[in-house]
């Protein structure tokens, strides 16, 4: 089984110090132009859409687009992000120079992992009319027998991550509970908490549930909060998928 539930790494048991491995989902903020005011204006608009979601949220600064950019003041960037109540914790995809600046500014460097997998472009997703089954793309197809099956309710505060696989939950996800999957998510009870499908960037992943009461759903990093969900679909069986950059919620046939 490759799926893990908050897998703890080798634990160092000493008198008072405990280091344990932990698995957390982090948001990555793609930094396009840290010296352009437009970047911060756009960021502010985004945050204003779901202020609770972003408040004190740890973020990883993705510097991929800045590989050839002229040097910029890392400490200043972090300070400005903090003003927006974001908490930068690390940089990713930075140059040696940028990584050094990050360390000097007191944040860490993340290598590999994250969303290196490219989000399939809309053309590859080949959106089909409502409810019609579609052939899973090779990337979306998990090996047989790798699906994580959860038979118990996922309670508030619990987080279940199906790494490299789909997840099937036969019970309900409570408000405050969280499902993460690199593939699809199926919930045969009521989805009241959060569900993140295609966590590593698979835009073809979908979420299916018998009754939608979710706080938040996301696919490949694109999300939709409860406030933006259509009222007439609340409490209904639905499927949720990505159409371009839009998270679409449709009733199941």
């Amino acid at each position: 089984m490759t799926a893990t539930v908050r897998k703890a790494g080798p634990a160092e048991e000493t008198v008072s110090i405990q280091f344990r491995g932990g698995l957390y989902t982090l948001m990555r903020l793609k930094v396009s132009n840290p010296r352009d005011q437009a970047f911060f204006t756009a960021l502010m608009t985004k945050i204003a859409q779901a202020p609770d979601f972003f408040r004190h949220a740890p973020v990883v600064l993705d510097l991929q687009d800045l590989a050839d950019a002229p040097p910029f003041n890392m400490a200043e960037l972090i300070r400005r992000l903090r003003q927006h109540q974001l908490v930068p914790v690390a940089v990713a995809n930075g140059t040696d120079e940028q990584n050094k600046a990050a360390i000097n500014a007191g944040i860490s460097i993340l290598r590999g992992g994250g969303g290196e997998a490219p989000v399939p472009r809309p053309a590859e997703i080949s959106v089909l009319p409502t409810g019609e089954p579609r052939e899973p793309s090779a990337a979306a197809e998990p090996a047989a027998g790798q699906t994580l099956l959860v038979t118990q309710a996922v309670r508030s505060g619990q987080q279940i991550y199906a790494r490299h696989s789909d997840i099937i939950v036969l019970a309900s996800i409570s408000a405050g509970g969280e499902l993460l999957s690199d593939g699809h998510i199926h919930v045969y009870g009521t989805l009241r908490g959060r569900a993140h499908a295609g966590l590593k960037g698979n835009g073809a992943a979908r979420i299916f549930c018998r009754s939608l009461e979710a706080e938040l759903v996301s696919i490949a990093g694109f999300w939709r909060v409860r406030e933006d969900m259509p009222d007439d679909l609340i409490g209904k069986p639905v499927q949720i998928f990505l159409k371009g950059e839009q998270v679409v919620i449709e009733p199941l046939p």
């Binding site: 118990q152 309710a153 996922v154 309670r155 508030s156 505060g157 619990q158 409570s174 408000a175 405050g176 509970g177």
Partner: peptide, 13 residues
């Protein structure tokens, strides 16, 4: 109810 749900999760883990 929310807190009870949380504590049930703690009991289970």
């Amino acid at each position: 109810v929310r807190d009870s749900d949380r504590i049930l999760g703690v009991l289970q883990s």
